[in-house]
């Protein structure tokens, strides 16, 4: 049986009294591109952050490429991962944030090669070459020595994508990657993401960009109030949403 690259089983997460995820079951296959849509507060960002263990789930399990996130199964028991183990598992999952989160004290190239050098101990020369290649791929070959403050939003986000790719992840998580961008800069980032998808990367994307969802994603998942209300093939779900809440949401976004 073809096991999915990502398997989320009965995920529950609360912040204080607020229950943000109320039983999420999700499976994403290798090479699949899945888009998650939903109103704000529906738990989409929290779900992403649980997948790479930036948040710890209260109940449920998340498997990425067969590895249980945050724990190890030892003799039928669950043993909490050490910090090093968590970091190691995270290294194969890339994440792109809404606010870019580039390191302001490093150049574009510096941002991209920092993690490979520090975490994977890649020699500087090799990391440098790889960094240049990745930045060229996202169309920023002429901005290697620029600092984030000198780049436009779209450029910064593309550096962020290159930075995440530098760790050669099996999975890429995108948390509303274009929401903080001026409209005319959105296209260049979506283009970079499309190229990534065509290359075969497994991607989970939280976004409001329905055009991207329809053209690039295989499946769309609609979340509301901490549960998955509906999911289906992207073109179908957009054309024929089954659920009332899905219809309401789509009518506002499309």
């Amino acid at each position: 049986m073809n096991e999915g690259l990502v398997r989320c089983i009965d995920i529950h997460k609360r912040f204080g009294k607020l229950e943000v995820l109320r039983g999420i079951n999700l499976e994403v296959g290798r090479g699949e591109v899945v888009v998650i849509i939903g109103p704000s507060g529906s738990g989409k960002t929290t779900l992403l952050r649980c997948i790479n263990h930036l948040e710890v789930v209260d109940k449920g399990r998340i498997y990425v490429d067969g590895e249980l996130m945050g724990y190890q199964e030892v003799n039928g028991h669950l043993k909490e991962d050490s910090e090093r183990e968590v970091a190691r598992k995270r290294a194969s999952i890339g994440m792109v944030f809404q606010r870019f989160n580039l390191f302001p004290h490093l150049t574009a190239l510096g941002n991209v090669i920092e993690a490979p050098i520090q975490v994977k101990k890649v020699p500087r020369k090799e990391a440098d070459a790889m960094g240049r290649e990745l930045l060229a791929k996202v169309g920023l070959a002429d901005k290697l020595q620029a600092y984030p403050a000198q780049l436009s939003g779209g450029q910064q986000q593309r550096v962020a994508i290159a930075r995440a790719l530098a760790m050669q992840p099996k999975l890429m998580l995108f948390d509303e990657p274009t929401s903080a961008l001026d409209p005319e800069l959105v296209g260049e980032v979506l283009e970079a993401m499309r190229a990534l998808a065509l290359d075969g990367m497994t991607m989970i994307v939280v976004t409001h960009e329905m055009g991207f969802a329809r053209e690039v994603a295989e499946r769309i998942i609609f979340m509301d109030e901490g549960v998955i209300v509906e999911e289906g093939l992207s073109k179908e779900l957009i054309a024929n949403p089954q659920h009332q809440r899905t219809q309401t949401f789509l009518s506002k976004v499309l």
């Binding site: 190691r88 890339g94 989160n101 580039l102 993690a115 975490v119």
Partner: peptide, 16 residues
């Protein structure tokens, strides 16, 4: 806090 998020998501430990 986004800086720590980014660093961690790249596989860095707290100390790194």
């Amino acid at each position: 806090s986004g800086q720590m998020d980014a660093a961690k998501s790249l596989g860095m430990t707290n100390l790194q």
